[in-house]
Amino acid sequence: MTALLEVRDLRVRYGHVEAVRGLSFSVGAGEMVALIGPNGAGKSSTLNAIAGLVRPASGSVKLQGRELVGAPAHATMAAGIVLVPEGRAILGRMSVEENLVMGAEARPWPAGREEAQAAVEQQFARFPSLQRRRHALAGALSGGEQQMLAIARGLLARPVILLLDEPSMGLAPQLVQQIFQMIADIHRAGTTILLVEQNARMALKTAQNAFVLERGEIALHGPAPQLAADPRVQAAYLGGDVEAR
């Protein structure tokens, strides 16, 4: 599999604290890769650096062979790196529809405005609960609906790679299942995904490959099912028994 996204020796510093310490990994076209690990392991910092929200201290981030390290967020977005961030970053004072339109306007559409509008309608057809609240302020949606909106908005930006940061955070268990089902569907439809999750069990179930981050470095990596069976992963992230739940 050729690497779509290639991260080499990435370092992110906040003052004297080094959050990401020389991280290297790659994501192949059409692949879904999970980054798991404890709080403060540097997972979100890695995504933010790839998306251009944080300027890395050093390293390389290449998308389809093109160097993007240090580029601002609007440039990484233009290249096709689309982030659905932790906390969702919904524009609460805008309507649901306007949030989606902003997603569709993030990158140009080959056939122009009509195609973008048709894509917005497609997302409404896919998420009937958003369709019902299309003119409501996005801030009035429930947490699960906001997460759906954030993902739908990200898809409308036509990602070359979709970065999902903690999509299950703060959601009820039933909704977590639903969101992960949705992520699996999006992947199956051909979108390359880099997923950061605290919920290691669901992440390892959904992704093909995974990296375990600890203190800004890769502690373990491999195919997701293999990692899920690894006793070290089970002890640290899966509560000791992966099959029992």
């Binding site: 929200l53 609007h74 961030p85 970053a89 997603g103």
Partner: peptide, 24 residues
């Protein structure tokens, strides 16, 4: 307009606007 939406997005949250590819 697109510019109008971008202005309102920056007014509400510059971070969210950046995530949406807006050149703040």
């Amino acid at each position: 307009t697109r510019l109008g939406r971008q202005i309102r997005a920056v007014a509400e949250s510059p971070r969210a606007a950046r995530i949406l590819g807006v050149n703040v």
